[in-house]
Design a protein around this nucleic acid. Structure first.
Lengths: 110, 110
DNA sequence: TCGCGATATATAGGAAGCTTACATATAAGA
DNA sequence: TCTTATATGTAAGCTTCCTATATATCGCGA
């Protein structure tokens, strides 16, 4: 698992990215991020929920209360067009950081 | 310039890396990091100095007061053997984060 | 010579992001 | 019945880095 100090700032991009594949509820978003990173990137739900509200408030996500077959209520999040537009510049920012760290600190890109 | 939220955690590795080339004083450390990253990675001196103390206290750096030709006192920092040993695992940690973000968020490695 | 910008070190207070701990509730399996 | 997994949410705290502030010397141009 990657340390907190390193992964700061990664959560928003990770959320946007997993929602790019389709709508998901909060708990599942956390699961997908962990799965896609083979366990390297993991967020507590206490970190994810406040982030989801903030991103909804910014207009990056839309949230709908959905009642499943079993009668359980879940909050289903989907990307808005505004949220989709954030993906490209955010990926570019991270690519910039990667490049800078390879130059300054000789971090490999393997 | 890369945003604060992204670059959190990068400062320690950047400092260790520029000191790998040879001893430097605080002000020059900041300059080198900026130079090596073509201006992408930049830290205020108010961020660097407390970090340097902390790293000295941990035994990663040794600091010597040096009086230059012009009579100006400067604090010269150099890597200790303990500091050198930190470089490899820290680079590996960052490489892990890069890999995870490429997988989860499709951040390019270009 | 007088101010100004660059060099150089240092501290205080604050913002942001993620964590642990707490709180609640249902469903599935041992 | 007890535990684990699913599911959402709040409160308090830590770390990291920033802005603002303070101090002091050097070299340069006016």
């Amino acid at each position: 698992m990657i340390r907190t100090e390193l992964k700061r700032g990664t959560a928003e991009l990770a959320i946007l990215s997993v929602l790019e594949e389709g709508p998901l509820h909060g708990y599942e978003i956390g699961r997908r991020i962990e799965e896609h990173s083979a366990g390297a990137l993991r967020y507590t739900l206490a970190a994810l929920y406040p982030l989801l509200y903030r991103m909804e408030h910014r207009g990056w996500l839309r949230a709908d209360w959905v009642t499943g077959d079993n009668g359980k209520r879940r909050r289903c999040y989907r990307l808005t067009s505004r949220g989709k537009k954030m993906l490209k510049p955010m990926r570019a920012e991270w690519a910039d950081l990667f490049r800078a760290l390879r130059q300054v600190a000789k971090v490999s890109h393997a």
